[in-house]
Design a protein around this nucleic acid. Structure first.
Length: 494
DNA sequence: CATAAGATGAATCACTAA
DNA sequence: TTAGTGATTCATCTTATG
């Protein structure tokens, strides 16, 4: 069935040609680089000439759903040199002031009789801390080893205590997650918007057999954490014992790299098999050049040795296992195989998150109410459930229908006694809706979620636009909602 | 139309030698 | 202090296939 016409396969009998195939990519790279650069240059020039900075900012704010009038005021107040995050800062503060005003007792409200009121309110806004006044604060750096405030498998915790900024202290508890290796300044901005809490950077390789470098901003206690049991396999060989038989001695990997949203191609696996087979003629190990090529590809695509000379990408159920989800968690409900990889690649590593959330168990013996934003396939819910923390009310926001179905299905499978309410659009969660839900079951104990990383992660070649990117800017909705829940609950608590 | 496969680099950091 | 090397990375788009 395999056609022998294909130019890159036809001559693989001889060793030199195998290597030619293997390295054929290199000869093109400089050419395509030039194309990319000139194209990008043209695009940028066009962009700058057609739209002014102000118009760009206005467009951006409008796309985020802010009224044009408020955006104009923000730009006027922040000045023409204001960055996006400064503008957003201002808009958030304006919204906070508005919401707090709404929840003031009627007799304490200022009169809304004149147009002057609104302007005055903006002038009195407490603008959140300025966008770094050039090197006044050192930028956030990633810890090495990346164990955050401690992991169960390392003997000594990095930090045993911390003091949270006053503004950050709950209720509610909040827990925010995103990729650790974001563009410069992104974590500084996110930390600033989340009450200046220092992010906790953790690599999930200390919890399971695959790396996953993530940052978490949360106001949870960090004393007396405990891991989920049983501890998951923490090396490739423990997780995949059958691969040991085929594992080359020169493949020194003990951990897999980060699971992403797609897997290696079958053709790549076949190229590796042919290269390996051709090398069998040599005594002992293949040449170093071949070893390096094969090992580089294995690392890049997270391949396992599943047979003689046979390297293969991970299966969907292996994704589930490594990420800490129950077997077949994403199976059924009409989801395609491609989408299972995508959903799993975007999920929490359950053991890691559960370790952080474990401190809630003693605090809420009667269960908790959770506001779960960007829920995906329900990593937070699974973590809390496996910790044995009853889920009384879970309000989940998830845009993908198949993901909502997966969470709903898990909810039914596990015979949950509580209520699961789901939304598909985070914009639906406004002050009124949140107020109504908080009144109905007495507030949220935990607001948890990881906003879209696709504009932040290095694996995005096309739209790595940073925190202001089309999807990753939904971070500001996470902030908006935590702010809202905080202010509503503090007013209810009086 | 839905699904799957294949092709598509750069940003960032740690590290090292000059 | 600086320039170079090596390693890693919750993706997007087009095309083929049925």
């Amino acid at each position: 069935m395999e056609p022998s016409i294909s130019s890159d396969d036809s001559s693989s009998q001889c060793n030199e040609n195998v290597l030619d195939d293997v390295y054929e990519d290199d000869s093109w790279s400089s050419d395509s680089d030039n194309c990319m650069n000139s194209a990008k240059q043209t695009y940028l020039n066009d962009d700058n000439s057609s739209l002014s900075e102000n118009e760009n900012s206005l467009l951006f704010l409008a796309n985020m759903g802010y009224p044009a009038e408020e955006a104009s005021i923000a730009m006027e107040r922040c000045g023409p040199e204001a960055s996006f995050s400064e503008l957003i800062d201002f808009m958030c503060a304006a919204q906070m002031a508005r919401e707090e005003d709404v929840y003031l007792p009627e007799d304490e409200k200022p009169k809304l009789n004149s147009g002057g009121y609104k302007r005055k309110m903006y002038n009195e806004l407490p603008v959140r801390k300025k966008q770094r006044a050039i090197t006044d604060e050192e930028p956030i750096h990633l810890p090495r080893p990346m164990i955050g405030f401690g992991v169960p498998t390392e003997s000594l915790p990095a930090i045993v205590q911390r003091t949270l900024p006053e503004q950050a202290i709950g209720p509610p508890f909040f827990y925010y997650e995103n990729v650790a290796l974001a563009p410069k300044g992104v974590w500084d901005t996110m930390s600033r918007f989340l009450y200046d809490v220092e992010p906790e950077f953790v690599d999930s390789k200390y919890f399971c057999a695959t790396a996953r470098k993530r940052g978490y901003i949360h106001n949870l206690p960090i004393e007396d954490r405990f891991p989920l049991l049983p501890l998951p396999p923490r090396t490739i060989h423990e997780a995949f014992p059958l691969t040991k038989k085929w594992w080359p001695s020169w493949d020194t990997r003990t951990k897999l790299n980060c699971l992403q949203t797609s897997i290696g191609s079958a053709r790549l696996a076949d190229r590796i098999r042919k290269a390996m087979k051709a090398m069998e003629n040599f005594d002992g190990e293949p040449p170093l050049m071949v070893q390096k090529y094969v090992l580089d590809e294995c690392r890049k695509w997270n391949l396992l040795w599943v047979g003689r000379n046979k390297a293969s990408p991970l299966e969907t159920d292996e994704f589930e296992m490594l990420m800490g989800f129950p077997r077949n968690h994403t199976r059924g409900g009409g989801i395609s195989r491609t989408d299972r990889y995508k959903s799993l690649g975007n999920a929490f590593q359950v053991d890691t998150v559960a370790y952080h959330l474990s401190v809630l168990k003693d605090l809420y013996p009667n269960g908790i109410n959770v506001l779960s934003l960007f829920s995906g396939i329900g990593g937070a819910e699974v973590a809390l459930y496996r910790l044995g923390i009853p889920l009384n009310n879970v309000v989940s926001v998830e845009i993908s229908e198949v993901n909502r179905n997966i969470l709903r299905s898990w909810w039914e499978q596990t015979n949950q006694k509580g209520n699961l309410i789901d939304f598909n659009d985070i914009q639906q969660l406004n002050g009124d809706v949140l107020e109504q839900m908080i009144d109905s079951f007495g507030g949220f104990d935990l607001v948890i979620g990881g906003s879209p990383c696709n504009n932040l992660t290095g694996s995005n070649r096309v739209t790595r636009d940073g925190l202001e990117g089309k999807d990753s800017s939904l971070f500001y909705d996470y902030v908006r909602i935590v702010d809202l829940v905080k202010s509503i609950m503090s007013n209810r608590r009086v």
